[in-house]
């Protein structure tokens, strides 16, 4: 049995997103929208320029199942283009760098639903619309969702969202319709640098560790994995990342937990409070008989 309850008939599938080779082309965003017929934002003003570097998508949501984040950081020039991480082979101009010059480090990362091992969205869904597939991914059944919206604040990553004009909740399906036919998801297929890698999670995790070690050996000591740890607050994620800074810099929670983990304690607390109400009502009638 896997952590998520399926017998091991089919290995768990997921993404390893290696942000160190992301070039911010947004091919993943476009391919996802095209394949899954994801509409433009509800609010057309959402099509505006956001003024956040090259990010005009803003965040994940009902109408953005992939989101490329762009972060510009001032760093000593000596830190720029020193390893193959930052060196995208772009031509450079200007005088050669001095040690105390500052340069810009550009972090780019394509974010997506994490397909959590312990998925809060799925746990709290009262209708059973959200379910776990044979690939250990988490998918909404649009014919069941009644748009109660509970999954939206439950997700510790702020991924799933209600589509306003439709009323139901939407998010990445890990291209359930493609992977069932042995195809890779549209975003991974479109990624020109293999920043988005699709495959069996166990194998991807191994590949991720190797990549991190290679980067560390190369002097990129800030490289770190995010979501690869089966002991984290969501039991590890099916879509995990190699990041070059702290998660919150990319808009990711540093230590997410699936809140249903605390559910037994919360029910006990609510049960005690309910007993308190019962006791107070009964006590308030003491001697009230006429």
């Amino acid at each position: 049995m896997s952590e998520s309850g399926y017998a091991d008939a089919q290995p768990r599938m997921g993404f390893f997103t290696d942000t160190s080779v992301c070039i911010g082309c947004k091919a993943c965003e476009v391919a996802c929208k095209e394949w899954n017929a994801v509409p433009a934002p509800d609010d057309p003003s959402g099509m505006d320029l956001l003024g956040l570097s090259y990010d005009n998508t803003g965040d994940l949501g009902a109408n953005n199942w992939r989101h490329v984040a762009f972060i510009e950081q001032q760093v000593p020039a000596s830190r720029v283009n020193k390893s193959d991480v930052d060196n995208l082979g772009m031509p450079t101009i200007g005088a050669p760098e001095q040690e105390d010059d500052t340069g810009v480090r550009w972090l780019m990362s394509s974010d997506v639903c994490k397909h959590c091992t312990h998925a809060a969205c799925l746990d709290v869904c009262p209708t059973g619309a959200l379910f776990r597939t044979e690939f250990d991914t988490v998918v909404v059944q649009p014919d069941i969702c009644n748009g109660c919206g509970y999954c939206v604040p439950a997700c510790p990553y702020g991924v799933i969202e209600k589509r306003e004009d439709d009323g139901r909740a939407f998010k990445c399906t890990l291209c359930y319709d493609r992977i069932g036919d042995g195809l890779e998801p549209a975003c991974a297929k479109a990624c020109p640098t293999d920043s988005i890698q699709y495959g069996e999670v166990s194998e991807l995790r191994q590949r991720a560790v190797e990549r991190k070690q290679a980067l560390h050996a190369d002097g990129v000591t800030e490289a770190r994995l995010y979501g690869d740890d089966p002991d984290d607050g969501v039991g590890g994620t099916g879509a995990f990342f190699l990041l070059l800074d702290e998660p919150e810099v990319y808009g990711l929670p540093p230590d997410p937990v699936v809140t249903t983990r605390d559910l037994p304690a919360m029910w006990r607390r609510a049960g005690a409070a309910a007993l308190g109400v019962a006791a107070a009502v009964v006590a308030s009638f003491a001697g009230a008989r006429r």
């Binding site: 997410p256 559910l263 309910a274 109400v277």
Partner: peptide, 27 residues
């Protein structure tokens, strides 16, 4: 009495920080 308190768990079982952090007191 269950009607009085189940809604506290409904709110507390989310990633909304004020509600989840307040899970002990909301009920």
């Amino acid at each position: 009495p269950a009607m009085c308190t189940y809604t506290a768990v409904l709110l507390a079982d989310t990633a909304t920080p004020a509600w989840h952090e307040g899970r002990g007191d909301l009920p």
